[in-house]
Design a binder for these strands. Structure first.
Lengths: 243, 243
DNA sequence: CGGTTAGTTGAGTGCATTCAATCCCAGTGG
DNA sequence: CCACTGGGATTGAATGCACTCAACTAACCG
């Protein structure tokens, strides 16, 4: 099957579509009995690496929940200038935020991605109907706001080496949170994508990784790094030094 | 009365505390009959320019609604490095976002500020009790997310002149929205604050304003600018040129 | 009128970018 | 099995944009 086309996988789990879902306890799926899960569930879909899930400015369509893979959420200023606001991991919702009935961001698969797909109407109705889920949506938005604010500060205030250090620390924390291997630490996104996230050029990212390697703080490899000294890396990031 | 102390003003409006409020139709106060407004209302407080409303990391206390003045919401990396994430205007809520039961951001008065003060428990209970207000809180968080994401892109992707242009355009749009004078456009925040917002040094802000003046796009004055050519300023901002 | 704070201006520096050459690796086809 | 190819990553040199530093000026407040 061609990788250039988006794969549609109806996944006809007639009985319990969520029974074996690895992220069914996360976000809006949490705390569901089987009935509630079945009520929310609609369909799944897979996306090849680099494919677009939703485009900023398009009429707000479905909401997605990531089952596997990583999605880059971004704002586009022009063809050549893109700001990746966040990298989303399995269990996270994306495509939810809208402005004037349109997607407020762009979502793109960084790795091969599998998502649940919810029509917005049903998603909103469902989360509105259950008090606990309304609360989940609200707190999730709060966390996102905190996260994006922190990242704005990273981009606005830190030197390149500090930004990269902060990014690696953040990525490591994410991997640990999801029980994934941290040594070596996989870097599934391209240097370009890292640069678009940190407000740096891809060459600068490369230079900085080489510099961190030279300092023996990390060991940079292809598609991965080994963190040799997490405490120094963390100290470099500028987020743990209140002085 | 000393400006260095925070002014407490109980404002004993025994009957209708919100009757003459200029922002009573904004945000969580909208659509209230008198009873509902009285139910939500607690107290008001004024803050001298430069004073702290809430500190990031402090246990999450009251929620504020700005009646008059401008509040800078920021993240602090160290004593000397601060990122102003947003400038809030009358009618906006601040101090709402929390992380682990603590204020996620710092809030500081840029101008003299008057706010309504709501205890968090009552605020949450009140907004949870009314469907329309739950919706208001949710959409407000979504807008904020969009705004911060856009600003991250501004800081991460634009040149200094573009950032300043984007900031001036944004400020002008805000003033217009609030029916305030736009020529001249008041700049109530210091060069330092603008720099902390845009990820620039205060001298750079000054240099850029001088450059925009030289280009006859604005006329820079003390505490204000006159926008001579809004379309060129807007084009410079990088947000209206999809190429 | 002084003293203080905010803002301006310009010269020099430095950090990130640009440009360009090279390398690595995966995929493909001979 | 290996040469070829193309995209991603690395590296280094040169450039340039924003920062640093410092002197100066303007506004504000006693």
């Amino acid at each position: 099957m061609s990788l250039s086309g988006e794969l549609n996988r109806p996944v006809s789990m007639t009985e319990e579509p969520c029974a074996h879902c690895t992220v069914r306890d996360r976000n809006v799926c949490q705390g569901h009995d089987s009935d509630r899960q079945t009520e929310l569930y609609e369909s799944r879909r897979t996306w090849a690496s680099g494919r677009l899930l939703f485009r900023e400015g398009d009429p707000a369509g479905p909401v997605f929940k990531i089952i596997t893979g990583i999605v880059a959420v971004s704002k586009r200023l022009s063809k050549s200038r893109r700001q990746i606001v966040d990298f989303l991991f399995p269990g996270e919702i994306c495509g939810y935020v809208e402005a004037d009935g349109r997607y407020a961001f762009e979502g793109r698969a960084v790795t091969p991605v599998e998502t649940c797909v919810f029509s917005r109407e049903r998603f909103d109705a469902f989360t509105a109907r259950h008090d606990d889920l309304r609360e989940v949506v609200r707190t999730t938005l709060g966390w996102k706001l905190e996260r994006v604010g922190r990242h704005t500060a990273t981009v606005g205030q830190l030197f390149s080496i500090e930004r990269v250090a902060a990014f690696l620390c953040w990525l490591r924390a994410r991997y640990e949170e999801y029980g994934m291997e941290t040594t070596p630490l996989a870097l599934p996104m391209s240097r370009t994508a890292i640069g678009e996230h940190l407000g740096l050029r891809l060459e600068t990212v490369s230079h900085v990784l080489a510099e961190l390697d030279r300092l023996r703080i990390i060991e940079a490899g292809y598609g991965e790094v080994v963190i040799l000294d997490l405490s120094r890396l963390s100290a470099l990031s500028g987020w743990h030094t209140p002085g």
